[in-house]
Computed example of a mutant assay.
Amino acid sequence: IVDYEKNPEEWIYLGDKPAIIDFYASWCGPCKMVAPVLEELAAEYDGQIYVYKVNTEQEQELAALFNIRSIPSFLFIPMNDKPQMAMGAMPKSSFKGAIDGVLLKK
């Protein structure tokens, strides 16, 4: 979604739809609570956004690149704006607000 090796100093999103990246770990309780909410939202907004999951234990370099210090952390990537990071488990209503307001600009 981003070629950080080619453009390490500049954020250039390569996707064709807005996205959410869920930075999680398999042992994280709040991450497990949020996972089904993200699955519901991925289905609800199918065709409008992407939802990616990054296991911070398996992808430590990627987690470090995004300065992930706590999990769960969520990166909201709009098409033409700077990405925004949110940390901690959030209710579905907060995700919907971010999707509609930040990603889809409704």
Results as ranks from 00 to 15, higher is better:
Pro83Phe: 12
Ala19Arg: 12
Ser70Glu: 05
Lys106Asp: 07
Ser26Gln: 12
Lys82Val: 03
Ala63His: 07
Glu40Ser: 11
Cys28Ala: 03
Ala19Leu: 09
Gly101Ala: 06
Ile99Val: 06
Ser70Asp: 03
Ala63Trp: 11
Tyr24His: 13
Met90Phe: 00
Ile49Asn: 07
Glu40Cys: 03
Lys105His: 13
Phe66Ile: 05
Ile1Phe: 07
Cys31Tyr: 06
Gly47Val: 05
Val37Lys: 00
Pro72Met: 06
Ser94Gly: 01
Met85Ile: 11
Ile71Leu: 08
Ser73Tyr: 02
Ser70Pro: 00
Phe95Arg: 04
Ile20Ser: 10
Leu38Gly: 02
Ser93Asn: 05
Ala19Ile: 07
Asp81Met: 04
Asp22Glu: 12
Ala64Cys: 02
Val2Gln: 13
Val54Ala: 15
Gly47Gln: 09
Gly29Asn: 08
Arg69His: 05
Pro36Ile: 11
Lys92Gln: 09
Met90Ala: 03
Gln58Gly: 10
Gly101Asn: 15
Asp22Ala: 10
Val34Ser: 05
Gly29Gln: 11
Met79Pro: 00
Leu14Met: 14
Cys31Ser: 11
Lys105Phe: 00
Ser94His: 07
Leu75Val: 06
Ala43Ile: 06
Met87Arg: 14
Lys105Gly: 01
Tyr45Trp: 09
Pro36Glu: 08
Pro8His: 10
Leu62Thr: 13
Gln58Glu: 13
Tyr4Met: 08
Asp46Glu: 14
Ala42Gly: 10
Asp3Thr: 12
Ala35Leu: 01
Ala98Cys: 06
Ala89Asn: 04
Asp16Trp: 08
Ser70Asn: 11
Ala43Arg: 08
Ile71Asn: 04
Ala42Arg: 13
Ala43Asp: 09
Glu44Phe: 05
Ile21Ala: 07
Met85Cys: 01
Lys96Ile: 15
Asp3Tyr: 06
Tyr45Arg: 10
Glu9Asp: 15
Pro83Gly: 09
Leu65Gly: 02
Glu10Gln: 14
Lys32His: 01
Tyr13Val: 13
Val54Ile: 15
Gln48Arg: 13
Lys53Gln: 11
Leu103Lys: 12
Ala86Val: 12
Ile12Val: 15
Ala89Ser: 13
Phe66Ala: 04
Asn80Tyr: 04
Glu10Thr: 15
Ser70Met: 08
Val102Ser: 05
Val37Pro: 00
Gly88Thr: 02
Gln84Pro: 00
Val34Asp: 12
Gly15Ile: 15
Gly88Arg: 02
Gly88His: 02
Leu62Gln: 05
Met87Gly: 02
Tyr24Glu: 12
Gln60Ile: 05
Tyr24Thr: 10
Asn7Asp: 15
Val34Cys: 02
Phe66Leu: 06
Pro30Gly: 03
Ser73His: 02
Cys31Asp: 14
Met79Val: 00
Ala43Tyr: 01
Lys6Ala: 14
Trp11Glu: 15
Gly101Arg: 14
Pro72Cys: 03
Asn80Ala: 08
Asp3Pro: 07
Phe66Glu: 04
Leu14His: 08
Val51Lys: 12
Lys53Ser: 13
Gly101Pro: 01
Glu10Cys: 11
Gln58His: 10
Glu57Gly: 08
Asn55Trp: 05
Lys6Met: 12
Asn67Tyr: 09
